[in-house]
C-alpha cells in the first residue's frame, strides 16, 4: 500500500468544515467553563465549611476522572433526569464541567496572589463581600490567569475528539466518516492531526506572547 498525500489535500475542505465545528464546541465549553470556575471561586468566599468542602470535593473528583467518563456521565444522565438535550449540548457541558475544575484552581491561585490590602481597601470603602470580590479582586486575578487559561483552552480543543464517542460530529468524526468510505485512514488522520496541530500550536505560542505582555504590565 502506498501513502498518497493528494488524498489528504482532497479531503481538507471537508475536514476544515469539521474543524469549524470543533472550534465552536471548544469556545462554547470554554465560556461556560470559565463562568462555572468563577462561580466555584465564589463558594470559597463563604464562611460555610460545607460550601468550601463542596469546592474541594468537586475539583478533586473532576480532576481525578477521565474526560471520556465525564462525557459519558453527562450523556447518560439526561434520560435518567428526563431531560431532552442533543449529544452536542451534553458533550459541550461535559467539557465545560471538566474545564471548570482546572480553571477554578488557576483562578484560586491568581486570587491568592492578590495582596490582602486590596480587599481591605475595598471593604473600607464600603463595598460588600461580593462587590469587592467582583469589582476589585476578580479583574486583577483574571488578568493574571489569562495565559494559563489560554493553555487550558488547548486542552479543551484536544478533548473535543472525545465528543465523537457520543456521536457528535466534529473534526475527528468527520475524519472517521471520510475514511470509512475512502479506506484511507492514514491520509485522512494526517489531515486531522495537521489541523489540530495548527490550532493548538498557534494558540499555545499566542499564550506565551500574552504571558510576556501580562508579566510586563504587572511588573510596571
Amino acid at each position: 500500500m502506498d501513502f498518497q498525500f493528494s488524498v489528504t489535500l482532497e479531503v481538507m475542505p471537508a475536514l476544515l468544515y469539521g474543524a469549524r465545528l470543533t472550534l465552536y464546541f471548544s469556545l462554547a465549553s470554554a465560556c461556560l467553563g470559565i463562568v462555572l470556575a468563577v462561580l466555584l471561586n465564589l463558594l470559597l468566599l463563604s464562611r460555610n465549611a460545607a460550601l468550601r468542602g463542596f469546592y474541594a470535593a468537586y475539583v478533586s473528583f473532576i480532576r481525578g476522572t477521565p474526560t471520556v467518563i465525564l462525557i459519558f456521565l453527562c450523556y447518560y444522565v439526561l434520560p435518567v433526569l428526563r431531560i431532552d438535550l442533543s449529544p452536542a449540548v451534553a458533550g459541550t457541558i461535559a467539557l465545560a464541567i471538566n474545564l471548570s475544575a482546572f480553571a477554578a484552581e488557576i483562578l484560586r491561585g491568581a486570587i491568592a496572589a492578590i495582596p490582602k490590602g486590596q480587599i481591605e481597601a475595598a471593604r473600607s470603602l464600603g463595598l460588600a463581600t461580593i462587590p469587592s470580590f467582583g469589582l476589585i479582586v476578580l479583574p486583577q486575578a483574571v488578568i493574571r490567569s489569562i495565559p494559563p487559561l489560554m493553555n487550558e483552552f488547548t486542552f479543551v480543543v484536544k478533548s473535543t475528539p472525545l465528543l465523537s464517542l457520543i456521536t457528535v460530529v466534529e473534526l475527528m468524526r468527520t475524519g472517521q466518516q471520510i475514511f470509512s468510505t475512502n479506506f484511507r485512514p492514514l491520509e485522512v488522520l494526517l489531515g486531522v492531526a495537521l489541523i489540530f496541530f495548527v490550532i493548538n500550536f498557534t494558540f499555545s505560542k499566542l499564550a506565551l506572547l500574552v504571558e510576556g505582555a501580562v508579566q510586563k504590565r504587572l511588573s510596571r
Binding site: 500500500m1 501513502f3 488547548t154 480543543v157 484536544k158 478533548s159 473535543t160 475528539p161 472525545l162 465523537s164 475527528m172 485512514p185 492514514l186 488522520l189 494526517l190 486531522v192 492531526a193 489540530f196 496541530f197 493548538n200 500550536f201 499555545s204
Partner: peptide
Amino acid sequence: VDIIRNIPFMVQVFMFFYIAPF
C-alpha cells in the same frame, strides 16, 4: 515534543492503530 503535545491523544492512537498494518 511540539508535535505530540499539540495533537489530541485520540488522533495519535488512531494513527498508530492504522500505521502498523500500513
